[in-house]
Design a protein around this nucleic acid. Structure first.
Length: 860
RNA sequence: GCCUGGGUGGCGGAAUAGGUAGACGCAAGGGACUUAAAAUCCCUCGGUGCUUGACACCAUGAGAGUUCGAUUCUCUCCCCAGGCACCA
């Protein structure tokens, strides 16, 4: 009997069958418990990479497993299809973005299908289609009416050569990524979403998401950056005006000796207007404004400032404080003004030293008293307040509240809270995105497009050159329109939305992907499926995508569309796929196929193996999933990705590891082939008759394996240990002597082993297991089979090994029956000949018995 | 600088309500089969020492502590990865 494992044939056969039979199509079913499993949907770049393979394989195992556990599983896929690369392809090669995008989708869809993922393809969505983004435009209108979407001036990265706005990621070391021109700051009118309205709830729920990795929540908390402090009012020395500052260190207020204002703050020029210093200050401000971006990316930059020939008063000491404009103060955090306490803030200290400003110590170091004359750096630790009037002698941290209360009692301050999080700027001066549904009318101003006029369709016939700002500006048929208010001539908004907007609600759309009524989400379906039970994706989206999605969920909830607070109950952030880099002196980095026997195929020079890094085209350390599928099949690709590392860790690619995975699949295949004829007509062992020792052990192993695999997948997503457990069972089966054809009992146990191996591996290698299932003569469909349960009494060991320690050191082992009493085991341990060599004539102080594990004898 | 993770054989990784460290796989070595090779199947495989044993000692980044017992808990330090970074 020789039937070779032919993965390609088998895989294509079953993929076709699943597609024809719509095996993974689901609908809402009130009788079944739902399970919504989602992987982050891909950008259609043209080809899937190993990161996708890993991400989607992990998800697929869970989806298939949950289905076998009886859940009604929603497992959809779609395309995050707006974005820059499509536009760049158009600029570089003249292909229309829609065409480029759809071709890529077709190609990647084929690849995903070839991997055998259990998607409900009837729910496929593509965010660049009008039937998707028209709802997004509707939500925008609702947000606009509620004041959650607004327009304001803001500085952006501007490439003067390309005449366009660049996203932060498109600025490389201060230069435009495409043309290399120096990026400038420009002040532009931009659309924003008021995420800060939800900042407290977003922060609060960080402590109510137990299914999220701690580090993601920490990153989000840091990003939100809540700080408790005080707004303090500083009166001007010679007018009735005031300067307000935000500080978290009101305990140091008595040490504030000068005032700093962000260079670009309008107050700077106001203060020097008409003064002798005005031209000098203007020059300084202009210089700083230009340098700003460069300096912010530099590791270190010199503190610089300029005196504004103005003074304010310290609100508690009434001392005169000179006012400076400074480069290191941020204009858009707090009030843009900072009280400087040079003795207890390092930046202020450096500034004071440079410009010869006064130092007053207000927190005394208890171990080593400070002297302003000799200090070489600011003292930032805790201590006792001095030079602080009625607060002298208090611990500085404890004085925070009292000083805030005092400031408020004299009308010069109050407790406040500041956040690092800013409103979300969604304007892009780009073509390939969802148009913002606003019309600008000279008479009426910004007017929202009436809901019944949606969608505002992105025009198709646009020439993309990459120059001259937003491409939509020059499309007359798009821009020129009439005002919905006054019917006069008006112009459409030409900004499109950030692509993060699409991905902020796509998971809702998957629940009713073809729903054509307002608001594009069928409440019944969405509230049945949502929230997502398990979300899986890369750690690189830990902040932006996940925070925006949480924000959108709360906004849509407040519009009455959704009835839950958070979109993702459990989150798994899988690690990256890495591979060692290879380079040759002549030809630089090499693709794996450019290396043969350690030599470069171009020049024959020795290839140097470099660091293991995330697979990337620039380092050429990539493996093409198509190649792996062609050589080994997708089942091998799947099991390798799962076996090499637990999902949250980085996975190191290993060609030999892939070989090993393939070898294991062959091993499974062969053992089933070996038994095929003998077990085809056998029923699985019913547990009624007595078995010989070998078969009893095999059965024990079967049930132990079911138990371990169930726990590993269900509780921990540790597929690597689940697979190794099945490997052990397969190894055990290989060790068993092949029962005689007439030994029905023995063969029944073997059949039990084989059936369970197939079922346990099904979520991991679905194609091969379907094929084997059919071959062993099963009539039931494997895709409809339930997950096996195990019999605890069969899995139990009859004899257990007890380790014996003397003073905590392992000195021997004894075999006892599993129900042996603790007293007897202790006795056996003490009387053990080997053990007596170590206890000898010493006195036994105590014996510790850990049930089923060990005995520790303590002697002296 | 701050905040998260994480350091275990030649390698990927197992084992944590404290209880036999190294499961499983890769690589390596040996054996069987073969005219031969590949494939396959079986065995060995952390280090050191000798008295080759059911041996002893050393081993989970380093050092201390708690404990009968620590990869697991506590403290100090070192290294690596990721995030934030003049946020007042």
């Amino acid at each position: 009997m020789e039937r070779k494992y032919n993965p390609i044939m088998i895989e294509e056969k079953w993929q076709k069958r699943w597609e024809e039979e719509k095996t993974f199509h689901v609908t809402e079913d009130a009788d079944k418990e739902k399970y919504y499993l989602l992987e982050m949907f891909p950008y259609p770049s043209g080809k899937i990479h190993m990161g996708h393979v890993r991400n989607y394989t992990i998800g697929d195992v869970v989806a298939r497993y949950k289905k076998m556990r009886g859940y009604n599983v929603l497992h959809p896929i779609g395309w995050d299809s707006f974005g820059m690369p499509a536009e760049n392809a158009a600029i570089d090669h003249g292909v229309p973005p829609a065409e480029w995008t759809n071709e890529n989708i077709d190609a990647m869809k084929k690849q995903l299908k070839r991997m055998g993922f259990s998607y409900d393809w009837d729910r496929e969505i593509s965010t660049c289609e009008t039937d998707y983004y028209k709802w997004e435009q509707l939500f925008f209108l609702w947000m606009y009416k509620k004041g959650l979407a607004y327009k304001k001036g803001a500085t952006v990265n501007w490439c003067p050569k390309c005449q366009t706005v660049l996203a932060n990621e498109q600025v490389e070391a201060g230069l435009c990524w495409r043309c290399g021109a120096e990026v400038e700051e420009q002040y532009l009118e931009q659309w924003f979403l008021r995420i800060t309205d939800y900042v407290e709830e977003l922060l609060d729920y960080c402590d109510k998401l137990p299914g999220w990795p701690e580090r993601v929540l920490t990153m989000q908390k840091n990003w939100i950056g809540k700080s408790y402090g005080c707004e303090i009012v500083f009166p001007m020395a010679d007018s009735n005006d005031v300067i307000k500052v935000f500080t978290t260190r009101q305990d140091t207020i008595f040490g504030a000796t000068f005032m700093l204002i962000a260079a670009e703050h309008p107050l700077v020029m106001e203060l020097v207007r008409g003064k002798e210093r005005e031209p000098e200050v203007r020059e300084f401000v202009e210089r700083i404004k230009k340098q700003d971006k460069m300096m912010r990316t530099a590791d270190f930059y010199e503190k610089e400032g300029i005196f504004l020939d103005a003074y304010c008063l310290n609100p508690v000491t009434e001392k005169k404080m000179p006012i400076y404009a400074a480069n290191f103060v941020l204009a858009d955090y707090g009030t843009g003004c900072v009280m400087a306490v040079p003795t207890h803030d390092q930046r202020d200290f450096e500034f004071a030293k440079k410009y010869g400003l006064e130092l007053i110590v207000v927190i005394q170091n208890p171990d080593n008293p400070l002297d302003p004359e000799t200090m070489t750096k600011a003292y930032v630790d805790e201590g006792i307040l001095i030079n602080s009037g009625q607060f002298n002698g208090m611990e500085n941290m404890k004085a925070l509240d009292s000083i805030a209360d005092y400031l408020s009692s004299i009308g010069r301050g109050q407790k406040t809270i500041e956040y690092r999080l800013r409103d979300w700027g969604i304007s892009r001066q780009r073509y390939w995105g969802a148009p913002i549904p606003i019309i600008h009318c000279e008479k009426c101003g910004a007017v929202p497009v009436p809901e019944e006029d949606l969608p505002v369709i992105l025009p198709g016939d646009v020439e993309l050159t990459g120059e001259g700002g937003s491409p939509l500006v020059s499309v007359k048929s798009f821009v020129e329109t009439t005002c919905p208010n006054c019917n006069g001539p008006a112009k459409r908004e030409t900004d499109t939305m950030d692509t993060f907007v699409e991905s902020s609600w796509y998971f809702d759309r998957f629940c009713s992907p073809h729903f054509d009524e307002k608001p594009g989400l069928d409440k019944k379906a969405v509230n049945y499926w949502m929230p997502v039970d398990q979300y899986i994706g890369g750690i690189e989206h830990a902040i932006l995508h996940l925070l925006y999605s949480r924000f959108y969920t709360k906004v849509l909830r407040d519009f009455g569309v959704l009835n839950f607070d958070e979109p993702f109950t459990n989150l798994l952030t899988q690690g990256m796929v890495c591979k060692e880099t290879e380079r040759c002196k002549e030809h630089g980095y090499l693709y794996p196929e450019e290396v043969k026997d350690g030599k470069c195929v171009h020049c024959g020079l020795d290839v140097k193996i470099g660091k293991t890094e995330k697979m990337s085209k620039s380092l050429k350390n990539v493996v093409d999933p198509d190649y792996i599928i062609r050589e080994y099949g997708s089942d091998t690709a799947r099991i390798f990705c799962l076996f090499a590392a637990p999902p949250e860790k980085d996975l190191e690619w290993s060609d030999q590891g892939v070989e090993g995975a393939f070898r294991f699949l062959n091993r499974v295949w062969r053992i089933v082939m070996d038994y095929l004829d003998d077990i085809r007509d056998i029923e699985i062992f019913d547990g009624k008759a007595d078995l010989d020792r070998e078969m009893k052990n095999l059965r024990k192993k079967i049930h132990q394996t079911i138990k371990k695999v169930t726990i590993d997948i269900d509780e921990r997503f540790h597929f690597n240990t689940a697979i190794s457990a099945v490997m052990e069972l397969v190894n055990t089966l290989y060790q068993v002597k092949h029962p005689d054809k007439r030994d029905a009992k023995g063969l029944a146990v073997v059949r039990e082993a084989i059936e369970n191996i197939i079922i346990l591996l099904n979520p991991i290698i679905p194609h091969m297991t379907e094929e084997l299932w059919e071959m062993i003569g099963e009539k039931r469909k494997l895709s409809g089979i339930s997950w096996p349960s195990y019999d605890e009494s069969v899995a139990a060991e009859e004899e257990i090994t007890i380790a014996i320690q003397v003073n905590g050191k392992l000195r021997g082992r004894i075999q006892v029956s599993a129900d042996e009493s603790g007293e007897n085991i202790k006795k056996l341990a003490l009387n053990n000949e080997r053990i007596q060599r170590f206890t000898g004539d010493k006195k036994v102080i105590k014996e510790i018995y850990v049930p089923g594990k060990l005995v520790n004898i303590v002697v002296k």
